[in-house]
Computed example of a mutant assay.
Amino acid sequence: MTDALFILFVLCLNVILCEWLIKKRAIRHIGTALLVILVTAVESNLGIIPTTETPVYDSIFSYVAPFSLFLLLLGVNLKDLRQAGIPMLTMFLVGSAGTILGVFVSVWVFAAPQTVGTLFYALAGMFTGTYIGGSINFNAVALHYNVSKAGNLFVAATAADNIMTALWMVATISLPRFFQRRFPRHLPIAAEAAATSSDADPFSDSETVNPNDLAILLALGFGGIFLSQKIAVWIPAAPFVLILTTFALILAQFRVVNRLRGSRLLGLFGIYIFLAVIGAYCDIAALIRDGQLAIVLFGMILLLVLIHALIVFGVGALFRQDWDVLGIASQANIGGATSALALARSLNRPDLQLPAVLVGTLGNAIGTYLGILVAEMLR
């Protein structure tokens, strides 16, 4: 069925289905992002929706995906970073450096140009972005290098990334407690962090949106994409994704924009629709035949995360940092702001919840830039 309205109906229905499924205990850890890819992949391979390019898919890649990325970045106000505290901010940046080093080492160890293929540099950029700030950067870099349309490669990379993110959450829950028992640290909590701790979840998916907020968000999104496209034409050397990212970050520094309700809600929905199209491009039979690719990608990710961890915990131990701070800073790199917030709660550190979110949003801000920089260095 190639009717545009029917395809949009199925894609939206898939988001509803996956949001319902992740509430089930058995599969809640898969996450909506990966699940919506898998469900749509099954449907496209059964012939319910097309597996090849259509005007609907092209429009989602051209407009919905960048629009959603733009909206999600409106929540990143860099002025808030001073509330994160020097230790948390420093260890997050150390972890970012560890991620970049790990990417270069893993590309070399696994001979990525031969084992991954011609898009190895783009995958390296995607891994850099996602393990500095989370999936926003992963999708932005993929969009820039058209990895999004290489369905099997993208799905294999997403699956490996989701597995590692889940494993690293377990690791960052366990490691601070283990090290605390062996090498106790009783460090004072920064006054700023304690004063600004909050039990409120700044990443709740439930928002009350009024027509005015919605109109402003749509106007900003459409205007941002239009201006970014024009600038990319005027300055061919400047990638469209980086221009759009920069524009969103500039706007996000104004509180009136940063506090607009609905940006995360609309942004997440758009990303899920974008990921559903990724699933539609996936040829499951070919993915099974290319199982070795998924193993290679997971090996690369495992090595780079281990290098990241050695650097974060090694430097942190050298300077006698709070073990919980090290775990949360690392989780902010690997899993993003939401995962770091969940970890702070799991470690019973309400004083570190806001710092966790703030350094995670810093990762959203810089991950795409660094991801594209690493990809271009390897290209």
Score class of each variant (00 low, 15 high):
211 P>H: 09
151 G>F: 00
22 I>C: 13
342 A>H: 03
16 I>S: 01
171 A>Q: 03
200 A>G: 03
353 Q>G: 14
72 L>F: 13
288 I>D: 08
189 I>V: 13
170 V>E: 05
213 D>V: 06
161 D>M: 00
18 C>W: 12
214 L>N: 10
157 A>Y: 08
321 Q>G: 06
226 F>E: 11
206 S>N: 13
368 T>W: 07
174 S>D: 00
116 V>S: 09
31 G>S: 03
26 A>I: 08
9 F>Y: 12
172 T>F: 14
130 T>D: 13
169 M>Y: 05
123 L>M: 08
265 L>M: 12
186 H>K: 05
109 V>W: 14
270 G>M: 04
284 I>L: 15
113 P>F: 07
128 T>Y: 06
275 L>Q: 03
127 F>A: 03
253 Q>V: 00
316 G>W: 11
177 R>G: 03
286 A>Q: 10
178 F>L: 15
335 G>N: 06
140 A>E: 05
52 T>A: 03
112 A>C: 10
168 W>G: 00
367 G>T: 12
140 A>R: 04
71 L>Q: 04
162 N>G: 11
287 L>R: 05
378 L>P: 09
171 A>L: 11
180 Q>C: 02
86 I>L: 14
176 P>F: 10
193 A>G: 08
109 V>F: 14
186 H>W: 05
195 A>H: 14
97 A>Q: 10
83 Q>E: 15
151 G>T: 02
351 D>Q: 07
34 L>Y: 07
282 C>A: 15
56 V>N: 02
242 L>R: 14
131 Y>H: 06
105 V>S: 01
320 R>F: 00
15 V>F: 04
351 D>K: 00
258 N>I: 10
198 S>E: 03
119 L>S: 14
305 V>G: 01
243 I>Q: 01
76 V>A: 14
308 H>A: 05
243 I>G: 00
272 Y>M: 14
49 I>E: 01
34 L>R: 08
296 V>E: 00
314 G>T: 03
273 I>L: 15
323 W>H: 14
40 T>L: 03
86 I>A: 13
294 A>F: 15
110 F>L: 12
52 T>K: 05
153 L>W: 05
216 I>A: 02
145 Y>P: 01
198 S>T: 13
348 N>A: 11
237 A>G: 12
73 L>A: 12
132 I>W: 01
133 G>V: 13
10 V>L: 07
370 L>Y: 11
239 P>A: 10
91 M>P: 10
365 A>N: 01
326 L>Y: 13
326 L>T: 02
358 L>P: 10
142 A>G: 15
141 V>A: 04
65 A>Y: 01
268 L>A: 08
314 G>I: 03
303 L>P: 02
154 F>V: 05
262 G>L: 12
205 D>L: 06
111 A>Q: 15
376 E>N: 11
135 S>G: 11
96 S>A: 12
233 V>G: 01
48 I>C: 08
142 A>P: 06
4 A>K: 02
149 K>H: 14
90 T>C: 06
122 A>F: 10
176 P>H: 07
119 L>Y: 14
251 L>C: 13
90 T>V: 12
202 P>C: 06
247 F>Q: 11
205 D>S: 05
289 R>I: 01
61 F>E: 09
64 V>K: 00
356 A>M: 03
200 A>Q: 04
253 Q>W: 04
372 I>L: 07
71 L>V: 00
22 I>W: 13
5 L>R: 10
205 D>Y: 00
126 M>A: 11
266 L>M: 09
24 K>A: 08
264 R>C: 08
4 A>S: 09
100 I>P: 15
85 G>V: 09
377 M>N: 06
103 V>P: 11
